[in-house]
Amino acid sequence: MEKTVAQLAWKHRELLLLFMAAFAFFVVFRYGPLYGVLIAFKDFRVMDGIWGSSWVGFKHFERLFGDANFYLILKNTLLLNLYLIVFAFPAPIVLALLLNEVRHRVFQRAIQTTMYLPHFVSWVIMAGLVVYFLSPTTGVVNYAIQSLGGKPIFFMGHKEYFRSVVVLSAILKDIGWSSIIYFAALAGVNPELHDSAKVDGASRWQRVVHINLPSIMPTVAIMFILTLGGFLQSNFEQIVNLLNPVTYATGDVIDTYVYRVGLQQFQYSYTTAIGLFKSAVGLVLILSANVAVRKLSKGESGLW
């Protein structure tokens, strides 16, 4: 006898409760506020409200694409996120592959725990530590440079170093936490593959390259697609806590620009247009990346 929907719902009530909590979160904080994008096509006034403000069509988008400052900020955002993909994205994969080869489990877990800890430190504290460590007078990094015969460098006072500081601090903070999903993927690798490779005389490096890495590639592909979807989405807390007037030329990104112009100068419609442009670019990138990954993997990987 087939169970009714009500019976199935009651049987799986715990799972439904968990689902409803997540569903409510997305409805309230993700889908609910979407009507606010209307102000990108209006001259929004707080006193008139969203619906009462007058329509202006693509006025704010014309201003956006005609603003020379925006192209500089877009360039900074693209370069910074490109560096993060090139250097920060592979870092947790490499860490997971390396630690997976550690046979002493106590040592492995100690390293993992140590690498996880920075993730739980806020960027306010983390940025303060970064600035302190890079200080030309009291910083550990400059002590090391001077001990090797070099001269101290004021890293936070030179715009050329800003992107490197952002990328390295991002890796330091999140490499451990981001590696968790790859550890989980490696745990699912069939041990019989390694046993067969050992019988055939494969070295440990060969087993990592030809067994472990291909086995986690579907997970890597999905994470890469999701990362591309947020390509213009910089870590605002990190940037705003590290940024200073000297480094604006290379460090001012879309998120900090939106904060400065939108919230501090009250240009809500203009910055909403910027946000809508950023979301549209993210959607195009995530769709394109998914198509490319599916073609390269012959339909075996991808989000859908």
Rank of each mutant, 00 (worst) to 15 (best):
K3Q: 12
V5H: 07
Q7T: 14
L8H: 13
L8D: 15
E14D: 14
L15M: 15
A21F: 10
F23Y: 05
F23C: 06
V27S: 12
V27E: 11
G32M: 09
L34W: 04
L34F: 05
Y35I: 12
G36H: 07
A40G: 11
D43A: 14
R45D: 09
V46Y: 04
M47I: 15
I50E: 01
I50L: 09
S53M: 07
W55L: 08
G57Q: 07
F58R: 06
R63A: 12
I73Y: 00
L84Q: 00
L84V: 08
P90V: 03
P92R: 00
V94N: 08
L97T: 07
E101C: 15
Q112T: 00
H119Y: 00
S122V: 05
S122D: 01
L129K: 03
Y132N: 14
F133V: 14
P136R: 03
T137E: 14
V141D: 09
S147T: 15
K151R: 15
P152T: 08
I153P: 02
H158E: 11
K159P: 08
R163V: 04
I171R: 01
L172C: 12
G176V: 09
G176P: 03
S179P: 07
I180M: 07
L186W: 00
V189K: 06
N190A: 15
P191L: 09
L193R: 08
L193G: 08
S203F: 12
S203D: 11
R204A: 12
I211W: 04
N212W: 02
L213D: 10
S215C: 15
I216P: 05
I216G: 04
V220W: 00
I222Q: 04
M223W: 01
L228F: 02
G229P: 02
F231R: 00
S234F: 04
T247A: 05
T250A: 06
D252Y: 03
V253D: 00
Y257W: 13
R260I: 08
Q264I: 13
Q265Y: 14
S269W: 01
T272V: 10
T272M: 10
G275A: 11
A280E: 13
V281T: 04
G282C: 09
G282K: 03
L283E: 11
L283N: 08
V284E: 12
L285F: 07
V291D: 13
R294Y: 02
L303D: 04
